[in-house]
Amino acid sequence: MEVLMASAIGLLTGAGVYLILRPRTFSVIFGLTLVSYAVNLYLLATGRVRAATAPILGPGTSDYADPLPQALVLTAIVIGFGMTAFLVVLALRARITLRTDHVDGRE
């Protein structure tokens, strides 16, 4: 489970960084999205990767998942989603105004 999680995070980050360094805005947005997926998985893993535990502490439960990373991930997802939406609109606007989708705004 941990190996799977770690390699997923590593793969997503690697692919994301590669795409961010590409010259077209579409690849860059795609790369940023992959990196944010990686970061979200990673945040979830900071609460330790465990299966079949109670989601929250209640009477009679001693083995429960850490609720804080889940709250952090929710916040991070919402913020990441908003930022990506903004960047998509910005990239479209740049494509229309500058007549190119190069990240420098010129070929």
């Binding site: 961010i20 990196v35 970061v39 945040l43 900071t46 991070a76 910005l90 990240v103």
Partner: peptide
């Protein structure tokens, strides 16, 4: 628009790093 594209992308990468640092510190 040209400046904005760089500024936004750079800060999004910065935010990802911030989250990694915060997550690590919490872990």
């Amino acid at each position: 628009l040209r400046a904005g594209l760089h500024y936004v992308t750079l800060n999004l990468v910065g935010s990802a790093l911030f989250l990694i640092a915060v997550g690590l510190l919490y872990a």
